[in-house]
Design a binder for these strands. Structure first.
Lengths: 262, 262
DNA sequence: AACAGTGGTTCTATTATAGAACCAGAAAGA
DNA sequence: TCTTTCTGGTTCTATAATAGAACCACTGTT
């Protein structure tokens, strides 16, 4: 059993994204298809605790600094984040490109940590970016190791959303097969137009898929011809990555995803 | 009017701090003096949306990665954060110490941004740290410019909590007077045992106090004798800091504080 | 074997919520 | 200038969601 009121409050919070970082009251109510009185009460409550900020100049609502506070608690607690950093740095140094750590969260992928290369387009601002599992090497490599039933549902979701990167269901399943066969995947221009990436999957001690690690950079540098070099670096560090994941608390919400299995 | 249920849910979230990053269900219920069934329902709801993570190994609840996601939205939106960074870096370079940007939020001070010096003890992990306004130069310098009624209440709060750094009410008001007279303040070992800081206040266009900017470092380096040098750097950059604050959205929740005035 | 913990579940009296109808003010259009 | 149509915010009560006692099943301790 979950609380309906709290669910609504969280859906209010979830409405604030990079694309829509501020909302007017009635605007947000329409977006959520809720009565504006209700949204008002929720926003007021969130504001009182600093989760939301009511900008007096624009009269709009925005996310509050309480969230910065809490995210700091998470990051501090996530010891794995600091354990994994030196390994990611090593890969970045070896390849000369940025390294992205992606985590499976419910039925989406989230960029949890990014280590930038020296010569890089800014990337780090994408930390926390969440997207469906059918987009990009980092995500596809995760999808490949999920139960077929879930793969089916996620691909269908993509098709019904007219996702650009799914040609046909058959072709997509072939990609997933290929990934499982070779253990890595390369894509260009899926998550970001000018960015290409090569990714390998990461598992827990029970061989459950947890996330992925990727080398990413501008298309013209990270070409399919270069993948060999980068793959070697990824595979060289695979063991240390796995042992870190095994040792430390890891907030992958696989549970919810698996509960959807019939 | 605010929502009681959502307030409870937020108080659940607020229970997760650096000191207490994970809670058992009944443990948390006791802490909040709530029925464990209620806490269970709230946690389940928060978990469903990724705000909370139920660690299957320890059976304890922890904050979820959704918060990292949201904090990234806040930071992206906070254009002032990037505008202020070069100025803070300049001060860090000039003084050789870390620079801390503190914001007034309701009746507390929050470290919103920290630029580290090269030669520094790690400090940045304190981003988001929240503490009462009677502790530390960065906070006292804010308190000095608040209405007397609020100063009174905050000091009384401190006294009833047996705060270490308040000798007597009279002595404390003298400190606040001194701050207003000289426009800066120096403390050593208040917020952190081995750290000293010198701070100046920051105001909006209506001369309302918004926050403060501080130079901070280990006591043995940031001595009272060194303050002149650092003060010059702070004051040199004061105008650029003010103009940035004037230009950009700034989430200081003064409103709630001011609403408490009789 | 008894006991005291734990996380999780069920059920209904009670309480908090949803949402229509209502402000007052701002902006847009005629 | 006078409507009209927005906006954020408020009030009130039928009704829907919540609180919390009593209850599992399980684990660890004595």
């Amino acid at each position: 059993m979950t609380s309906k009121t709290v669910s609504k409050a969280l859906s209010v919070l979830n409405s604030f994204t990079s694309e829509n970082p501020s909302w007017g009251l009635r605007e947000l109510a329409r977006h959520l298809d809720m009565n504006h009185t209700v949204v008002y009460r929720l926003l007021s409550t969130l504001e009182e605790e600093g989760y939301v900020f009511h900008n007096p100049d624009t009269q709009k609502y925005e996310l509050g600094i309480k969230l910065i506070e809490l995210s700091n608690v998470v990051e501090e607690h996530l010891k794995f984040a600091e354990l994994i950093e030196p390994i990611m740095k090593k890969i970045a140094l070896q390849t000369g490109e940025s390294v992205v750590f992606t985590i499976l969260d419910n039925e989406e992928g989230v960029f949890l940590k990014i280590v930038e290369s020296e010569q890089q387009v800014r990337f780090a601002e994408s930390v926390g970016k969440r997207s469906p599992l059918y987009i990009g090497a980092s995500h596809k490599v995760i999808l490949a190791y999920l139960p077929e039933e879930i793969q089916n549902r996620i691909i269908d979701d993509g098709l019904s959303n007219n996702a650009q990167h799914i040609e046909s269901k058959e072709a997509f399943f072939e990609v997933l097969e290929k990934i499982k066969h070779q253990g890595w995947y390369y894509t260009a221009g899926e998550t970001f137009n000018d960015v290409a990436a090569i990714s390998i999957p990461l598992f827990d001690h029970k061989k459950n898929i947890l996330g992925s690690i990727s080398v990413a950079g501008p298309k013209y540098r990270v070409t399919i011809e270069e993948t060999d070099r980068m793959l070697i670096s990824l595979q060289e560090n695979y063991q240390s990555l796995s042992s870190v994941l095994r040792k430390s608390f890891f907030p992958s919400r696989r549970k919810f995803l698996m509960n959807t299995l019939s």
